[in-house]
Simulated scan of single mutants.
Amino acid sequence: MNKLWAHISEKNFKFLTIFVGISGDLIILNWLWQRKEMFFAKYNELLEVQLKVQGLVMNESMKAELYQLFSQMLILILVAILVVHLLIYSTFYFSKPFSRNYLKLYMGSAAIGCFLSWVSSPLSMLTFLPLSVFYGICTKGLLDQKDHRFKISESESES
């Protein structure tokens, strides 16, 4: 791995990390969005159980409105996650220590989570295996970054 870092400047590593992060975010958020029907069905099932326990009945128009609310809430949460991560990636580009530490934790846990998702269902989660590898490479780079193992290009050392 040290040979890899010897050929990559810190600036290029930042671009690689940001690219992997944004790509991974889009893949994971898209995966969540595509499963909203499944999430709502499970929520609806739990709601029906609670309504029966309390002796209440919900009409179909109320269920449709609840589905719309659920969809809008999911969109809001997914967009909020994306906006926060874009802010973190921009602060990482400008070498803020908080963002580097956040990305170490986020990408490390995402590498493990994506790998475990792939293990649980190898064919349907095929995109999560390479994503796990890329997250792992970026995590290793973020951990090695404090050791200054990156190549310093001539233009970066002059400035």
Rank of each mutant, 00 (worst) to 15 (best):
L76T: 09
F39M: 10
R35M: 04
F115K: 09
W118I: 10
V57T: 13
M107Y: 13
C138K: 04
L82N: 06
H85T: 07
Q34N: 12
S23Y: 14
A110I: 00
E48V: 02
T139W: 12
N59F: 00
V133W: 12
E45G: 10
L123C: 05
S90R: 08
A111T: 01
I77S: 03
I77E: 02
K140T: 15
T127L: 13
G55P: 10
L76K: 13
K14S: 14
H148L: 14
S90M: 06
Y67H: 03
G113T: 13
M73H: 06
M125H: 14
V79I: 15
T139M: 08
L46D: 01
I88M: 07
A110N: 02
L143W: 14
A110F: 03
P130G: 13
L105Q: 00
F19L: 13
I22M: 13
A41Y: 08
V83E: 02
L142M: 08
F15M: 09
Y135G: 05
E45N: 10
M38A: 11
K42W: 09
G21W: 08
K14Q: 12
L16Q: 11
L116H: 00
P130W: 09
E45Q: 15
L131I: 14
A110K: 01
F94N: 02
E45T: 14
V119E: 06
M107G: 03
Y43M: 10
F98E: 12
I28N: 02
K14G: 14
I28L: 12
I81N: 05
S109Y: 04
F115T: 10
V133P: 06
K42T: 10
Q54P: 02
L46M: 08
I81A: 12
L142K: 03
L32A: 10
M73E: 08
T139I: 05
L69D: 02
N59W: 00
R100S: 06
L74E: 07
R100Y: 01
L56D: 12
S61E: 04
T17V: 15
G136V: 13
A64I: 03
E37K: 05
P97C: 02
G113H: 01
I27T: 10
D25A: 14
D25P: 01
T91D: 11
L87E: 05
V83M: 11
L29I: 04
T17I: 09
M38P: 01
M107P: 00
Y93V: 12
F40W: 04
H148N: 15
T17L: 15
K140G: 05
V49W: 00
L74V: 11
C114N: 06
V119Y: 07
A110T: 01
S90G: 02
L129D: 11
H148V: 15
L82H: 01
A64V: 12
F92Y: 15
L82V: 13
N59R: 03
I18P: 06
Q34I: 01
I81P: 00
C138T: 09
L103S: 05
L32R: 11
L86N: 12
L123I: 12
I75D: 11
K63W: 14
S99P: 13
L51N: 14
F92K: 10
N101L: 11
L129E: 05
L116I: 11
F70S: 03
S23Q: 02
T91K: 07
S95I: 07
L131Q: 01
F92W: 09
S109W: 00
I75C: 12
N59Y: 06
L32F: 07
D147A: 15
E48S: 03
Q145Y: 15
S61I: 06
V133G: 07
T139N: 08
R100D: 04
K42S: 11
